[in-house]
């Protein structure tokens, strides 16, 4: 063995021990990483991501560590963020508009999630684009729900089609569709009464509203938006599941993200039921509506 070789070998040893040390250091961190992993897991659970989805995500992280995609603790969060972002991004989150005639958007969800307010905000949004908007007061059940929508109509310059309180919501939807067609409306929003997804008679009512709209405009509703409250925990999955059985959902609106709730349950909804989130609500004012940006959402999950 020549001198240089010897040296090289000697150095190799040093190098080995050096890199070894570094690796150990990382491993040492990886030990701390157990804590760090726990902490991440906790963050996800606290964001309402849910046990199952959190487990899936943590598995991805462990895989990432094995495959050396995660080499230091610093890589952990960005990796998770990216994973969540990828899960949430989907090709179908464009809003579907009618090629001709009115676009009908049906807005559904459990009680108090923010359906009517969201319609108010969306109405303002499309009015801002110069569209002619109409609102159908098909929540004929809750006290003063019609007046509430009427106020949003006045605020945003949209005509409101209304019947008596207690009347058939499908009839309101029907009248509204006819009126929208007759009056050259661009977008018709149908507000519905809040209902728990387990009430089969109310789900039947929703199906009927859907059918009536479809009968008048075969490709309508062009959008069926499920409104979810970000404060909601794992029940949101049941909501998404059961509502979609009554009316095929094209997108989710996640409201009340201006609070401290993170709305992480939509990750599970996306993973299990593949529903894109299209809008987020960030306040009660007319302009407190934003398009959903997966990257921002993923990032916010880890913010304290």
């Amino acid at each position: 063995m020549g001198f240089f070789d010897k040296l090289k070998k000697g150095l190799a040893k040093t190098r080995e021990s050096l890199t070894g040390k570094i690796e150990k250091l990382v491993l040492g961190y990886a030990d701390i990483d157990d804590d760090l992993l726990d902490e991440l897991e906790e963050t996800l659970i606290m964001a309402d991501v849910g046990v199952k989805t959190t487990e899936k995500l943590m598995q991805a992280v462990r895989q990432g560590i094995k495959q050396k995609k995660i080499n230091s603790p610093d890589d952990l969060k960005p990796f998770l963020e990216q994973t969540i972002r990828d899960m949430l991004v989907s090709g179908t989150d464009e809003v579907r508009l009618a090629a001709q005639g009115p676009t009908v958007m049906l807005v559904i969800g459990v009680n108090g999630v923010g359906k009517t307010t969201t319609i108010g905000k969306l109405s303002a949004y499309y009015r801002g684009q110069g569209k002619k908007v109409m609102l159908a007061a098909a929540d004929t059940f809750r006290a003063a729900a019609i007046d509430q929508l009427e106020i949003w109509g006045q605020r945003t310059g949209a005509e409101v089609i209304r019947h008596e309180e207690g009347s058939d919501p499908a009839a309101v939807a029907y009248d509204a569709v006819l009126a929208a067609k007759a009056r050259g409306v661009d977008i018709l929003f149908v507000d519905t009464a809040g209902r728990l997804q387990t009430k089969s008679n109310l789900m039947e009512e929703l199906k009927k509203i859907n059918r009536v709209i479809q009968r008048e405009i075969p490709e309508a509703p062009h959008e069926t938006l499920l409104v979810l409250d970000a404060t909601t925990g794992q029940n949101a999955i049941s909501q998404a599941d059961l509502f979609s059985q009554a009316a095929p959902i094209s997108g989710v609106v996640l409201t009340k993200l201006d609070g401290t709730a993170k709305g992480g349950v939509v990750i599970g909804i996306k993973a299990e039921l593949s529903m894109p989130v299209k809008w987020i609500g960030v306040g009660e004012a007319v302009d407190d509506l934003r398009p959903f940006v997966a990257a921002d959402f993923a990032k916010a999950l880890f913010e304290k």
Binding site: D48, D229, T231, G233, G259, T260, A261, V265
Partner: peptide
Amino acid sequence: VDAMTGQDAVNV
């Protein structure tokens, strides 16, 4: 309090 509230219930 809404029975469907998630983890944030404690903060609220």
